[in-house]
Design a protein around this nucleic acid. Structure first.
Lengths: 211, 211
DNA sequence: TAGATTGTTAATCGATTAACAATC
DNA sequence: TAGATTGTTAATCGATTAACAATC
């Protein structure tokens, strides 16, 4: 990749990757911008503008080579390297994430869980041990953790984030519906379930009002 | 609200609502565009442009009235009315969603669960019964369901979505990482966990490359 | 009133789309 | 080659920011 990649493009890369992976699994050797656009609800123009940022994609009059496109996307996304992660807040959502196989398959491995609940500490979920919060700095350092998953209640989310940041984590995957404060050298990605549901309700309302 | 509300604004409304709810709970009578902007990492200008679309918000030189702002947002989002929902695909993620109290508190109630797993059918989770997929049209009609939550494996997601659409559902809350096809009169909101994680990995990479 | 914030206009910025020559 | 798709430029569209008079 050459120039700065626009954020709008950035957000689509994981979607392209998902689609390309599926097409490759189905045995497709080539995918065109038309196919991708159609599958993802975008225009071919947008796809081409986005992929322009990556020089090493092999293309022809059939479209882009599935293999090279997948490779380039995985490189760009850092999927090839994966990451070691910890998860703080072992509620039901936290447990669902730990059990999710796909992350591990892609190299994103949860190495430790943290909670304040005394009853949980020492147990294991999917063979991942649950530690007390106090051991977070030690474990993060020892296991070379780069991503912290935050699935705590709202009240403790910022506190936990500060702990993670102090432990030199590089990115926060936040499932708590607040805007966590992190220094500029730490990446953050928010997954907001409640707002997402409200947004759906809002869209339904819009559709009903003006059909 | 008067004119068409821009989609960019639409996506921020749930965040405003979340923040205002918290401020109201803390006893704030007024919130300014500066406060909201600061809390959510936006500019005051953006906040004011967004809220301009809603006429009934009471404002003063202290900012916006928390009470009226919350009310307007809840009205706009359709949060006041809530919705009856069904969930298809009772895996761990599905279960985590069923257990999530917040949705129910806000009036978004899951009235039925559906799965193909014979062992699950007839059981209850959080007092919500699990039905066989075949009974979906009947239950959706009887219980006046408007939102369908899709937490199935990728392979069955489109099939399940078609079932829901045929049963006259109004919105799909999709947790499966594919672009589901729905007719234009059905709203859809996607929650993509894997792409979200990859996006985080990508941002970490960007930060490392050019700090 | 005085101080602060909104409401609003205009300018800037970025993202999307259209179109077509270059390429495979 | 012929047909189809890319790569790229230019035009359009929408979103964000800045600035300041109007308002409370």
């Amino acid at each position: 990749m050459r120039k700065r990649i626009p954020t709008a493009t950035t957000k689509r890369l994981p979607l392209y990757h998902e689609y390309i992976s599926r097409m490759e699994a189905e045995g497709s050797k080539w995918v065109s911008s038309f196919m991708i656009a159609n599958a993802l609800g975008l225009t071919p123009s947008t796809i081409r503008q986005d992929l322009k940022h990556f020089e090493t994609i092999e293309s022809s009059s059939f479209g882009y080579s599935t293999k090279s496109l997948k490779k380039v996307l995985e490189n760009a996304l850092g999927v090839t390297t994966g990451a070691n992660m910890v998860l703080v807040g072992v509620g039901r959502l936290g447990m669902a994430i730990v059990h999710h196989k796909k992350f591990r398959e892609k190299g994103f491995v949860i190495k430790g869980l943290f909670d304040v609940n005394e009853d949980l500490i020492g147990k294991r979920i999917c063979n991942v041990p649950i530690y007390p919060l106090g051991r977070l700095p030690e474990i993060v350092k020892k296991k070379r953790i780069t991503i912290g998953i935050v699935t705590t209640p709202v009240e403790s989310a910022q506190y936990v984030t500060d702990l993670l940041v102090d432990a030199n984590i590089k990115g926060i995957w936040n499932f708590v519906p607040i805007n966590l404060r992190v220094p500029p050298n730490v990446a953050i990605e928010n997954v907001n379930l409640c707002p997402s549901l409200f947004l759906l309700a809002f869209r339904i309302k819009l559709l009903e009002e003006m059909p």
